[in-house]
Design a protein around this nucleic acid. Structure first.
Lengths: 350, 350
DNA sequence: GTGAAAGCGCTAACAC
DNA sequence: GTGTTAGCGCTTTCAC
């Protein structure tokens, strides 16, 4: 086979490039680039010819070349612990919607992949093809946050507010939400209100505990440490701590779980003890993930606007990318108590 | 400011490149490339120096440059309808795990973004930075599948078996699963068994209906069209069709919903009619998504090994990337009936 | 064993 | 208005 054959063979494997379009439309390839990038000062006639040629040839831009040369990829990374919690799914949904609107693509990274190498991992991400990074990480990520900030790489944290770093972030009113839920229980007549904590390394967990405690105090109800059981935001811990609370000599008449998943575990525990919700015990959760309205009884919970948090975070990030000098912002969205059927007024004793 | 200042200013913004490493270790930059890519024939001494320099400078490879030059990015795309169904989440989890193992990154694309432009959309993906594509799309994607196949772009379909295209795919035994579930209901004594279909454009929906019908036939139970209500795999349709079935003059004593989400909707409908599961009516779902064990009563369902389907699909894709000439493969994983508490033996009549 | 050099496809200065 | 040209950071022949 001669060179020409070989060449055409190769071409058939290649995608059509800007050069092919240039040849087909009889202009230089930088003009093609201009047309494709919406540069104004191109003769209408030329523009048409280029567009037609591109269309006919089925030209599609090569993203890596474009970003190599142009310095940005229109891709943003989202770093999450994993996909096994619909809490994450909701956030990503919001992110995705907002990104779609701005014509960005989404690269999904899960931390469970590279335990221990996260520092380097985040470096790779930042240095790689993403224009910005959204972090929904459960551990306090101070080490790599510093790296991100030093590079002044655009990033925003979601639902992780205890970092004193100069990063943008969005969270929700954890304290207020917990306060509201607790007050609701108090207003129903409950006095012995149990609490299952979240993973206490997370700021949100601490804020929720504080809100619970504050509501108690404001209503002159003593805070009893034995009514607080440890949890880690996973269903299993809700079950275990639920049992612990239920088996107390003087068990609580209501329990506030720091998130919905644990409330589900708690519901299991309650069933195992042959008690029923809300007749024997009232429970409330936190998050309002989709299945909370599906379980039986439907769970009263503090709604975190998860998808909106994702949306807002994405927007903050995009702003930061467009305007790198803008100082970090912090947005806190309001939670809302969603009353369903898992709580009842305290029965008259006797 | 003079040129040198300007230059150093720019540099401070840049990431350290292979050239910086080369300078620091006193070799040519192609040698650095060799070391970094694990090329064997480099003097051990040289290798060490390069490695040290890279480490010290904090060098991280630039992905787009690497893929531009090298022709592959180690990124695979995953195209999903959206994230609003944990069915998808489970699949992605499997995909992600397998990809992590092979050191690939995951690019997430959602179809709800570009309705109507999907053809072009998939083109972009394929031509862009991904080395392969995993499709979990609900609509029959024949149009762009053709494009993918023509470019012989590595891709595999998940849970979409009715395409006669020459693509690799993985699905599960939908027919058998539905057959098993129906037989289980029959063995419990049920004769009037309702069925809520899935979105019939999907092959899986048809296969499940067929399995249901076959089980009926095999047990000499007439197939009654009025007992089959339309659904679309979403909870709302389960609710609506559930009501329709429940309000029949002679309602079924058991209902098989084509997926769990619809079974949840059905459960709502049943509660609304003041009936209870499983005392008054038995129900079974399909998929076994995480919340199916959480709802009350825990749902008896046909488990699809969703995460494993994701894993297998990823593996098939990776094989296809490594060995482009391998013919498309099709893998069907076994479903399994998971018996929980939503079914009971038919009560003696009278 | 290692260096030099030619691109990968594109953007963005800079000419004309 | 449009063409020319220099890279972006890297992989990969091809020399030596």
């Amino acid at each position: 086979m001669n060179e020409i054959d070989n060449d055409s063979f190769q071409k058939s494997h290649k995608n059509v490039t800007i050069i092919d379009v240039a040849r087909a439309s009889g202009v230089s390839y930088s003009t093609v680039s201009r047309v494709l990038n919406g540069y104004e000062f191109v003769k209408e006639d030329t523009r048409q010819r280029v567009l037609e040629a591109a269309e006919k040839l089925g030209y599609v831009a090569n993203l890596q070349a474009r970003s190599l040369a142009g310095g940005h990829s229109n891709i943003i990374g989202v770093l999450v612990p994993g996909l096994d919690n619909s809490y994450i799914g909701e956030i990503i949904r919001g992110v995705d919607e907002e990104l779609a609107r701005a014509n960005y693509d989404l690269m999904l990274y899960t931390t469970h992949r590279q335990r221990g190498h996260e520092q380097r991992y985040v470096n790779t991400i930042a240095n790689g093809l993403t224009d910005g990074l959204l972090l929904v990480v459960p551990e306090v990520p101070t080490d790599y946050l510093k790296a991100l900030s030093e590079k002044s790489f655009p990033h925003v944290l979601i639902d992780q507010s205890n970092v004193r770093d100069s990063s943008s972030m969005v969270d929700s009113t954890n304290w207020q939400g917990a306060y509201d839920a607790t007050r609701y229980l108090i207003e129903l007549g409950h006095r012995r209100i149990g609490f299952i904590t979240g993973m206490m390394e997370l700021s949100s967990a601490g804020e929720r505990l504080d809100g619970y405690r504050a509501a108690l105090t404001d209503h002159s109800i003593p805070f009893l440490p034995e009514l607080v059981a440890p949890g880690d935001f996973w269903q299993r811990s809700g079950h275990k701590s639920g049992l612990q609370l239920l088996d107390l000599p003087a068990p609580p008449t209501a329990i506030f779980a720091s998130n919905d998943l644990m409330a589900f575990g708690l519901m299991e525990a309650i069933r195992e003890r042959n008690l029923s919700v809300p007749e024997d015990i009232s429970i409330v959760g936190f998050d309002d993930i989709p299945q909370s309205s599906i379980v039986y009884p439907p769970l009263t919970t503090v709604r975190q606007p998860l998808d909106q948090m994702g949306r807002v975070a994405a927007r903050l990030l995009l702003e930061q990318i467009e305007n790198p000098d803008r100082p970090p912002r912090r947005v806190t969205l309001a939670t809302q108590l969603i009353i369903r059927e898992s709580c009842a007024a305290l029965k008259e004793r006797g």
